[in-house]
Design a protein around this nucleic acid. Structure first.
Length: 475
RNA sequence: GGUCGGUUGGUGAAGUGGCUUAACACACUGCCCUUUCACGGCAGCAUUCAUGGGUUCGAAUCCCAUACCGAUCACCA
């Protein structure tokens, strides 16, 4: 069997949202499942959108996620160059080959003429379609215009009859009537190819036989196929991926959630967790397993189990997956993850490494992403605590002043500041103030931390330190 | 407007004619554990699969209409 090869083909915009990444992941899984190749190709035929450093950015993102490219603009390969703007001569050559074959033609129509046609179509509530004006120009006419320097594009001659059909791994058989296909532009007047054209040429030349991409291409795939046919090339296997929606049911954008991988990464989400979550968006395994390493995904991935309907990006579930991965981290790695956020938010200069480790240890089970620790640990860094309404309500109980009074005394009497001794202090308070359970713990917790939830109370108190505790108890 | 798709709970989803009085997971709610909250464990949470018809002994699963949502119709990718 032929080796499977697919490509991730983004435009270099310097931004990678979750939907893009998911396409890359699915392509990667699909091909690696059978030991195939995964390559990167940069689609920069629209020069206006180019962003500096975007290629490095794509490599970085994918490397973080564990997706390594077998071939690509930075690491090379046998079918380069892998950047479309460096392949202009190739496209030109193939476009002209098509003209010679009679499958394409020069078109000298001006923008004005096309705009006029478009306007007429619009007024008649019709879809605009190029009218084939230049389809039958004579050789002489063409020669003359080219010599005169009239700008031109090359358009593909489309059949108007019949139906184009192809098999999609996800969507099954897709049929489109050829009469709705227009004579698409292959080569623009600036000498650059259109996306549609460059895509087919490159995919063929790079021996791509698996094409995984968003389902916005479902409708244009017949055009690609006609191009493959015109050259007499073999068509690839198509996998069109369902769209990823934001929580508002709209297409994912920067507005409806942190749609970019880098945003998430900079919030302290783990790439493995993001990949894991993304793989589950629109795909499900045969069994009920939900936590997967990349290797496991590669092993069990089956593209026929990709769903046809769009899926909604749900941060809550991502948080759950990410929290799971954080809990599994070694303390050392967890400190590594979380420390940059802490040192960015707070002054850590007077904190020992031991203290920091201890802090992370007691919070590791409480956070779902790295940056969350900043808010959770406020009480350790800010002098003042700000109990919310619920806390204040709770503290209105009349037994509380006495509990606090007794506990404060117990704390004062502790000679050696240690977790067992703090536990004892709590225990003694229970006896002396004759309160227990919630009415024992909650007042102390709120008074010392300002919140109702948190890690083990003795641990927290220990880390806070005797001075701060006494100060807060006195207020 | 034409064309092509999609529609299972708040969310991700399983399900491809009987084993489904619809799995599993997130979220939510309750209980247990812990002398507290959380963590963890357990339980509850769609009589119903957009709606209406049809095929069938039998349908979430097949067919047809309707509704809604989306994609697409460029010298953008």
């Amino acid at each position: 069997m032929e080796k499977k090869r697919t490509r991730f083909a983004p435009s270099p915009t310097g931004y990678m949202h979750i939907g893009n990444l998911r396409s890359a992941i699915f392509g990667y899984l699909m091909v690696k499942h059978d030991g195939g190749d995964f390559l990167l190709r940069i689609e920069d035929t629209d020069q206006t959108r180019k962003v500096e450093g975007a290629i490095e950015f794509i490599y970085d993102t994918c490397r973080l996620c564990g997706l390594e490219f077998d071939e690509g603009p930075l690491n090379g390969g046998p079918y380069g160059p892998y950047t479309q703007s460096e392949r202009l001569d190739i496209y030109k050559k193939y476009a002209h080959e098509l003209v010679e074959k009679g499958e394409a033609y020069y078109c000298f129509c001006t923008e004005e003429r096309l705009d006029k046609l478009r306007k007429i179509a619009e007024d008649n509530h019709m879809a605009f379609m190029y009218d084939g004006h230049c389809k039958n120009l004579s050789h002489e006419e063409i020669e003359e215009k080219i010599k005169a320097g009239v700008p031109y594009v090359i358009r593909q001659k489309m059949t108007k009859e019949g139906v184009s059909t192809y098999e999609d791994v996800v969507y099954g058989t897709i049929s489109v009537e050829n009469r709705i296909l227009e004579d698409q532009v292959l080569l623009k007047s600036d000498g650059y190819p259109t996306y549609n054209f460059a895509n087919v040429i490159d995919d063929h030349l790079m021996h791509i036989n698996v094409v995984a991409r968003g389902n916005e291409y479902v409708m244009s795939t017949p055009k690609y196929n006609l191009l493959y046919d015109a050259f007499g090339w073999e068509r690839p296997t198509y996998i069109h991926l369902p769209m990823v929606l934001g929580e508002d049911g709209q297409k994912l954008s920067k507005r409806n959630g942190d749609a970019s991988f880098m945003d998430l990464y900079h919030e302290g989400y783990l790439p493995e967790a993001i990949v894991n979550y993304l793989a589950l968006l629109g795909w499900s395994p045969v069994d009920n397993q939900e936590i997967f390493t990349l290797e496991e995904l590669v092993k069990v991935f089956d593209p026929s189990r990709i769903s046809k309907s769009p899926s909604t990006y749900d941060v809550k579930k991502l948080n759950w997956v990410n929290a799971y991965y954080i809990k599994k981290l070694s303390l050392e790695d967890c400190v590594k993850l979380v420390k940059p956020f802490l040192s960015e938010a707070y002054d850590l200069s007077d904190k020992s490494e031991k203290w920091l480790n201890e802090l992370v240890r007691i919070y590791q089970n409480h956070i779902s992403y790295g940056k969350e620790i900043v808010k959770e640990t406020e009480m350790f860094f800010n002098k003042d605590i700000n109990p919310d309404f619920e806390c204040i309500e709770f503290m209105k109980d009349e037994s509380i002043p006495k509990t606090i009074e007794v506990f404060k005394e117990e704390i004062e009497n502790i000679s050696e500041w240690s977790i067992p001794n703090i536990s004892n202090a709590i225990n003694n308070t229970k006896e002396k103030a004759s309160v227990k359970g919630k009415m024992l713990y909650m007042p102390i917790r709120i008074k010392t931390t300002g919140v109702m939830h948190g890690p083990e109370l003795p641990d927290t108190i220990y880390l806070l330190g005797k001075d701060i505790i006494l100060e807060r108890l006195s207020k």
